[in-house]
Design a protein around this nucleic acid. Structure first.
Lengths: 225, 225
DNA sequence: GAATGTGAAGGTTTTCACAGCA
DNA sequence: TGCTGTGAAAACCTTCACATTC
């Protein structure tokens, strides 16, 4: 009998661990397609450029999913991580701002693949309101609060200009939304009980720029074979 | 006289420090627009939801830019960080894959604003090759290696399907490119001397999903006032 | 008085190394 | 024998606290 995933986590799990769970999840999905029955922490680590100890430690926070001498059962572990990350269900997501980035996100396959269903689109541009994107009619942002409530939206993706982002996020918070993914290069203020994450796509380019200019040492992956 | 930025950094600077430099840079750009002459670590920290000590420590790795009792000169500090991050110049960037995400990135203002100039586009789709995106003609990916060399491209942004990403990245590496930003959900292998960063946009949504499902405690920002 | 710069302390994350089990 | 699970150690990162400077 396997130990169940603890429903409420005692020790605070680090952000990095959670991000790595996403990586494991992706690797396991691939391994399942490749018909692997089991996988060792060593193999998982290799595929995600991590160390075997890291993989085992991360997983150990949530339970004992492996078998000594054998490894982890691919299918089960994938299901477990899926449940830990809340990917064993679908999420009703609204996307605000049908510009550049917004339009791309509507058809971004990785979102829907993981259960994030964009079911609502908003914009303030009269030319866009009423138009159809991938089967969804763009709503007027003036009705944001009521429509977010009526459509039982659980997460919001913000892809609006930085200058208006705070006003919109205030509305979103008023609508009772507790999870927001922000693409605007702005520092948004939200109450303590609202989860806000920022996606800053030029940050990684800036890292590359820094790395080249400064000859920055790469983090070396120990292979401990 | 100010102490110059050490050209080669002895102690390895952490990734987080570099990412925070990006944040400081953005905040300082705004402060400059707002006509601030100086800024304290306290104010900078507040704007980026960090601690004053963190700000001072980060900056101290690169030099002494402030004045005791006064704070940091906004304009100078911005210039210094700009030079540290390599943003005081322009970068010739090629974008490969003019799909969903790729098209959005061509017009993504944050890139050009920081000096990342997309000067070259590639795709393998005959219908796209030869077409004009924001003044750039899409090239055939079959000429990737030679064109990257001839056009003296310094960075590559990859926005192609995961299934073909490795083949393309191999070509990119052969062309001598040392910095790659990858949007494909794939684990690409590159030689040690090539910087590769991954942008995984669903990872943050997965974090939000985890946070909701597990009532994950937010990292609390100490205000030490 | 105000705020930086920085060793040292404290806290967190990663890695080690090995007991334990299939 | 092979590989997990995990305390302990090591490495790393953040915060403290204060001497220092304007």
């Amino acid at each position: 009998m396997s130990i169940p995933v603890s429903p409420s986590i005692r020790k605070r799990i680090s952000e990095s661990t959670i991000h790595r769970l996403s990586l494991y999840y992706r690797a396991l999905s691939l391994l399942e397609k490749e018909n692997y029955e089991t996988v060792s922490s060593k193999e998982l680590a290799k595929r995600e450029k991590l160390t075997p100890a890291q993989v085992r430690k991360d997983l150990s926070f949530f339970g004992s999913f492996g078998t000594r001498g054998l490894g982890y059962p691919v299918k089960e572990l994938r299901a477990q991580i899926s449940s830990i990350l809340g990917l064993d269900r679908t999420w009703r997501v609204a996307l605000i701002g049908i510009g550049n980035i917004g339009s791309a996100l509507v058809s971004y396959k990785e979102f829907s693949k993981q259960g994030f269903q964009i079911v609502k689109l908003f914009d303030n541009d009269q030319r866009k309101i009423g138009s159809n994107h991938k089967g969804i009619i763009v709503s007027d942002i003036r009705n944001l609060e009521t429509e977010l409530r009526n459509d039982r939206i659980e997460m919001v993706v913000l892809a609006v200009p930085a200058t208006v982002a705070q006003y919109i996020v205030d509305d979103v918070v008023r609508a009772g939304i507790k999870a927001i993914l922000n693409f605007a290069p702005a520092n948004l203020k939200v109450p303590d009980d609202v989860y806000l994450r920022n996606e800053n796509m030029s940050m990684e380019l800036e890292y590359l720029s820094f790395a080249i200019v400064n000859n920055h040492a790469q983090k070396r992956v120990k292979l401990n074979i």
